[in-house]
Design a protein around this nucleic acid. Structure first.
Lengths: 137, 137
DNA sequence: CGTCCATTTTAGAATTATTCTAATTATAAT
DNA sequence: ATTATAATTAGAATAATTCTAAAATGGACG
């Protein structure tokens, strides 16, 4: 019998570990490729199935991106810094907003997703160079 | 000659108006269908092309969702409340965080995207009923 | 006005990411 | 061992989006 936690199956377990260890940000494809190294038999559908199950169970979270496939991330509270130019994603830990949000919205907040857009150092450099060289994009 | 703002072409203009008037949250498909009512000749690719141009020009913003196609929204600063169950999206105006973010991250923040997850009243009702009736999902 | 050039739009094929379906295999329970 | 339940596989199917090449449009300029 299954008591709500869900039986953690072989692949679900491995996928969960991959995500937790790698500090997240992988696409389904990347997870699949990484998993295939140790489990050559595994198939994409299995990865997608498990990712969606793990999401539903609240073991991981899906991070949808503006211009690339969804990323999967560990659940532990943290926010994201996203380069507006190259899409590079990194973690930040901004103060927890839940209290402030509840002050405005009342109880019942489940979670939130904060993405902060900036230009990563590499892209900022590039911009500067382009501007300096007068290479109007 | 084009001086950076970009020539606002016929369809770009109409699409931008649709988004600004409707208070956003439409998918590309919905925009296409709405536009087709007054412009029967228009084609999906045109809508996608213009949406992506408008995004690049910073005239609108793309809001990627976890479980449904991207939405397109007016640029004016506001945040989103998302029902974790049915996906319903609504606007909230939470205090501007830019200053706080810059305190932690330094200058250079371009913008941010905050989604707050909750259960909308309808879904909360449903949950309650399900629980009451003992209909274990 | 007509020609040239750049841009926009169109039509539809192509691609990508993801989901679905049905068959097969593994796991657990009796 | 037998049966039931759930996980996995293979591959087809779908949905959303992008790409490509051709056609249409809109100035700029002689």
């Amino acid at each position: 019998m299954d008591e709500g936690g869900g039986t953690v199956t072989k692949y679900a377990k491995l996928i969960l570990e991959l995500i937790n260890q790698s500090k997240g940000h992988m696409t389904a494809e990347q997870i699949f490729l990484k998993l295939k190294k140790t489990e050559p038999g595994v198939v994409q559908a299995t990865v997608y199935n498990n990712l969606s199950t793990l999401c539903k169970e609240g073991m991981i979270r899906k991070v949808p991106m503006e211009d690339s496939p969804d990323r999967y991330d560990r659940i532990q509270k943290h926010d994201h810094l996203v380069c507006k130019k190259c899409g590079k994603l990194s973690d930040i830990c901004f103060d927890d907003l839940t209290k402030d949000l509840e002050k405005q919205l009342g109880e019942g907040i489940l979670s939130y997703d904060l993405k902060v857009f900036y230009l990563c150092p590499k892209c900022r450099e590039e911009e500067k160079r382009r501007y300096h060289d007068g290479l109007q994009m």
